[in-house]
Design a protein around this nucleic acid. Structure first.
Length: 293
DNA sequence: CACTTGACCTGTCCGC
DNA sequence: TGCGGACAGGTCAAGT
């Protein structure tokens, strides 16, 4: 669920809310959510000031004045929700909020700032994690060494997308788009949405795609990612931004979670199948599976 | 080596 | 109503 647009939306919110705040303490219980030893957490977090919030792929990097960074992956159900000291932790937000009283039973880590405000790391399914890493070593993490280019960076061109996808020429296009070593940040929602835009069947083999199709896919991918950031991401069940509010992209979605509805382009009923091990939505008329010639 | 599948988890929904 | 099982889908390890 949190894909590039959702993580970027959280980053924008945290970058506005956190820098300059000083950490007083941290509470955490589930060790896998924060694997650093408890002593290290207290030692390198307490007294640290937050210097900035960055994103690479679907990972958030919160910089600290101690030359350590908090590296966070939300995986499927992670949330990072900030509450100011003057906000009742138990009251929730009136406007489109999905989270109420905090901490709740999905809260894995709580950062407490000296001004009384708090940052809650909630994660229902416990797949996500937060790690304290010396800042110069962050990019040495295996994930960062392998991850592909940022699709919204200036040097990510149509040609680059085609070259990267062709690294998996024998895969279907959906599996290749989801492969984080091919390019960073695309997950199930935006893979389906961009393939619909480019009129490509998700099971099409990469080697069977024409150059023009790669370029169409590039245009649709960039369009969908930018629109999703504009809409604050997609909220299905869990995802919320740094203020606990929903994203609205799904009301603009063309195929994702719209099985049984009419394709907005041709009116054919949208199907849901399984491709690359994931639930996959597509229009059987606009996105035909052609044999490799 | 290229590629696919299963494990990690919990909550929800569906059929009986 | 209760209960088992399928499903949700990001990433890594294990399997083919």
């Amino acid at each position: 669920m949190p894909e590039l647009p959702e993580v970027e939306t959280v980053r924008i919110g945290l970058a506005r809310l956190l820098p300059g705040r000083q950490i007083a303490g941290v509470d955490f219980d589930w060790p896998k959510s924060f694997p650093n030893a408890a002593a290290d957490v207290q030692k390198f977090l307490s007294g640290a000031e937050i210097t900035g919030v960055e994103r690479r792929a679907k990972v958030l990097i919160i910089g600290l004045s101690t030359d350590y960074s908090l590296v966070i992956h939300l995986k499927m159900t992670g949330q990072l929700v900030f509450r100011g000291a003057d906000e009742q932790f138990g009251a929730g937000h009136p406007n489109q909020s999905l989270v109420g009283s905090l901490p709740d039973k999905s809260t894995r880590v709580t950062l407490i700032f000296i001004d009384g405000s708090r940052l809650f790391f909630n994660d229902q399914r416990k797949f996500g994690w937060m790690r304290l890493i010396p800042t110069p070593e962050v990019m040495n993490l295996d994930f960062f060494k392998k991850v592909g280019p940022e699709p919204l960076s200036a040097d990510f061109t149509r040609q680059v997308l085609r070259e990267r996808l062709l690294r998996r020429k024998n895969s279907n296009i959906k599996a290749a788009l989801l492969d984080q070593t091919v390019l960073a940040g695309v997950g199930n929602i935006y893979a389906d949405e961009s393939l619909w835009g480019a009129k490509i069947h998700p099971a099409t083999l990469v080697k069977g795609l024409a150059v023009r199709q790669f370029y169409n896919l590039y245009d649709e991918l960039i369009f969908v990612l930018k629109l999703a950031i504009e809409k604050g991401g997609s909220t299905d069940k869990n995802y919320v931004n740094a203020e606990g509010k929903r994203g609205s992209y799904l009301s603009f979605a063309r195929v994702f979670r719209r099985e049984g509805q009419a394709c907005p382009r041709c009116g054919t009923i949208i199907l849901k199948t399984r491709v690359a091990g994931r639930g996959t939505h597509f229009c059987p008329n606009c996105q035909k599976l052609k044999p490799v010639s």
